[in-house]
Structures are given as structure tokens and as C-alpha cells.
Design a protein around this nucleic acid. Structure first.
Lengths: 136, 136
DNA sequence: GGAAAGTTTCCACCCAGTAGAGGGTTCTTG
DNA sequence: CAAGAACCCTCTACTGGGTGGAAACTTTCC
């Protein structure tokens, strides 16, 4: 079947999951998981049931990958992508969400700094016992 | 039974799990979980099967809590505490482990900073489309 | 036509706990 | 001494974000 022979304006690439995995660097399983969670909606299914993706899906996966890397949860991402897909381009919603994320990142950085101090303190307390039992 | 009547040097406090939870601020369930994982070894069991803890266990829990807070894994903690319990006072092993952790914290801080930039970039790219579809 | 690669669904597992059921123990109070 | 509260036990099941494998189907290549 010449599935893409007469199409001229929109090639409708119909990428299969393996190709998407190759292009995004995400594991096939993960992409399937994202579909299951409603995060990613394949453009269609082939007659035999294969998921078919398009360029828009790739763009979404880029966003998903970026935001997941900063611990935006799956349900939160579902919400964000729904807004985006709605075409409303509701940037304020996204801005709020992302601003909150930046805040939490700053908080986390402070926590990590505090942990480094704690770590040093802990290490010090262990050094106190050095030698007392080791030579026993 | 006057279990601690004749003891003079070592009171052998025999704390039960609830008391340990109260003193450390950890949930009872978590302490039980740590025991199951071999992270924490109760001094003994009462005749009726209650876990009995001592001051040493409290000290260990302090360490566990500090290190868990910085994402030291349970298996890693098992290893660390085993070394500590062995009485060898092998500070160099611990120092290495903790130094590595500090490194990874620094790395993580850098990553988070990079994420903040990425986040700003992403936000910018979304703002580009602002208005084109929203007013449609 | 037949092997190899790709895809499907489903089920189980990982970590670090957490929640609840169902039952035994210990402490306090009448 | 009994009742009830508070405590503790084990066991099972669930969480989130995937990951691994099995068994069956489709597509592709030779």
C-alpha cells in the first residue's frame, strides 16, 4: 500500500514507537508508559494496532523530557500538556507552574547546601573515635 | 520482674519502638522497615516479641536519618553501618563514601542551576506564541 | 516462505516507605 | 481482677515512575 504516495502538503510521517525512541533518546517502554498515563497521545493506531506518532508528538516529548528532568510530576505534566493542546496558549498557567518549580529548585539548592554542612559535621563526629578502637 | 534493679554500670534502657519513634521523630513504621532491611538491629526482642532498642540504636538512627536525607541508599547505609558496627572505626571508608556524596551534591546543585536556565528558556519559547492563538 | 526485528498487551518487579487488617501484650483505672 | 486504652506484632497491598520479561502478532528482508 502506497500509504504516503499521494500526500503532498502534509507528509503525515506516521512514526512508529521505535523511531520515536530513536529520535528522542527515550526508551520504548517509557514512551508506552507515557501513552498509558495519557501524557502522550499517538496520532493514530495502524490497522494492526501499532501506535503512530507525528512531529507534534516529538515536540511534546521534548517538553516532557525537559520538565520530567526537573521533577515535574506526570499528573502535572498531563495538565500542562492538556492546556497546551487546547491551543489556548495559556501561558500564565504554565508560567505559574514553572515559577513554582523554580522556587522549589531554589529551596532544594538551599537544602543541599545545608546537607553538605551536616555531612561535614557528621564526618567530624566520627573522626573523634579514630584510633581509640582501631588499635585495640 | 525487676529487670533493671541490680544493674548499676549499664542501665540497658530497653526502649520499645514507640519510644524510639518519639525520640528520633521517625514514624514507627519506618523504624520497623529499617529493621526489616537490616539497617537497624534491635538489641533484643522481649519475651512477647517486642523489639528492644538501646542508646546505640538511637545513635545509629541519627546517622541513618542524616544520610537518608541526602539520598544515601538503604543498601549503602547497610554497608556503612556494618563497617561502623565492626568497631574497626574505619573512618577512611566512610570519608570516601561521604566525600563522594558531597561531590554528587555539588553536581546536583549545578544540574539544578542549569535546569533553572532551561526552564527560563522553555518559558521564553512558549511566550513566543502568546496572543497568536489566544485571541483567535 | 521463513527468519529477524519490531510491536502489542499483560504481569511482575524496583525503591523507600506508608496504610490498614487482624491479633497479641502491657498499662491504667475502677 | 476485669475492662479498655494504648501499644506492638506480622502480613498484605499500595504509591510513583518507570523497567524487565513473556507470549503473541506484524512487518521487513532475503
Amino acid at each position: 500500500m502506497a500509504r504516503q504516495g499521494s500526500v503532498s502538503a502534509k507528509p503525515a510521517p506516521s512514526l512508529r514507537i521505535g523511531e520515536v525512541a530513536r529520535r528522542t533518546g527515550l526508551p520504548v517502554k517509557t514512551i508506552r508508559y507515557y501513552c498509558d498515563e495519557g501524557l502522550l497521545q499517538p496520532r493514530a493506531r495502524s490497522e494492526s494496532g501499532y501506535r503512530l506518532f507525528d512531529e507534534e508528538n516529538l515536540a511534546e516529548l521534548t517538553i516532557i523530557r525537559s520538565l520530567r528532568a526537573m521533577d515535574v510530576s506526570i499528573p502535572e505534566l498531563v495538565r500542562i500538556l492538556e492546556v497546551r493542546r487546547a491551543g489556548v496558549c495559556n501561558c500564565s498557567v504554565l508560567k505559574d507552574s514553572i515559577a513554582a518549580k523554580v522556587d522549589s529548585i531554589n529551596l532544594r539548592i538551599d537544602e543541599l547546601a545545608a546537607m553538605k554542612d551536616e555531612l561535614a559535621r557528621l564526618l567530624n563526629s566520627w573522626q573523634d573515635c579514630g584510633g581509640s578502637k582501631a588499635d585495640d
